[in-house]
Simulated scan of single mutants.
Amino acid sequence: MVLRHESFLENVQERGEYATRQEADHAARVVLALLGAHLVGQVRAELAARLPEAFALILLNPLQAAEPLTPERFVRATAAWIEGATEHTALWDVSAVLSTAADTAGDDLTARILLQLPPGYAPLFGHPRHT
């Protein structure tokens, strides 16, 4: 099931407690671009197919990661791309977006996404541990 653009952003905005839809949109674009650089093949394609088109395109056309980022470095990279963000606020941004993406993806696809990422990402997706 593909989540509508407004529904996806509404979920991100609520989870991230953003004052505006634009803040939620910016966080979603940054986090999904970074995530897309870490996913490959069918897993990335399946997640993109479940996201609203604008976000699917960002996920499918990422900058290429030179190396997989640990969760901590992923959060730091997010902070670097969001003006005024700190590591603490970026952690909030990452969790708001990735937990919404996980809900959209479903448990099976989320488990396959986590297998492509370094250990420690499960809590960012709203999952207590790596499955």
Rank of each mutant, 00 (worst) to 15 (best):
Q22I: 03
A105V: 03
N11Q: 14
V75P: 00
R76K: 12
A111E: 11
E53D: 12
L91S: 10
T70D: 06
A24N: 00
A85T: 06
F125H: 05
Q42I: 06
W92T: 05
T89Q: 07
A96Y: 09
L109R: 10
A19S: 14
T104A: 15
R129E: 13
L117G: 07
D103L: 11
L35R: 01
L35D: 03
T104Y: 01
L109N: 05
A102V: 01
T104I: 09
V12H: 06
R21T: 13
A33G: 13
S7L: 13
A28T: 06
V40M: 09
L9S: 08
A90M: 08
T89D: 09
A45L: 13
L109H: 07
G106F: 05
A102L: 03
H127G: 03
T20H: 09
L57A: 14
L117V: 08
A80V: 04
S95R: 15
D93M: 05
V40K: 15
L35A: 02
P118A: 01
G126Y: 07
P119K: 12
A27P: 00
H127K: 15
H38S: 01
L9D: 05
A37D: 02
E67N: 08
L115E: 15
F55S: 02
S7I: 11
M1E: 08
D108E: 15
E53M: 05
A19W: 10
Q22S: 13
A54P: 12
A45P: 00
H130E: 15
L115Y: 07
R76G: 00
E67T: 07
D93Q: 08
F8I: 01
A105G: 03
A101N: 03
A66D: 13
D107W: 05
E17G: 10
Y121N: 07
A48F: 07
A90L: 08
A105D: 06
A111K: 11
H88G: 10
T104M: 08
F8E: 09
H88A: 14
E83Q: 14
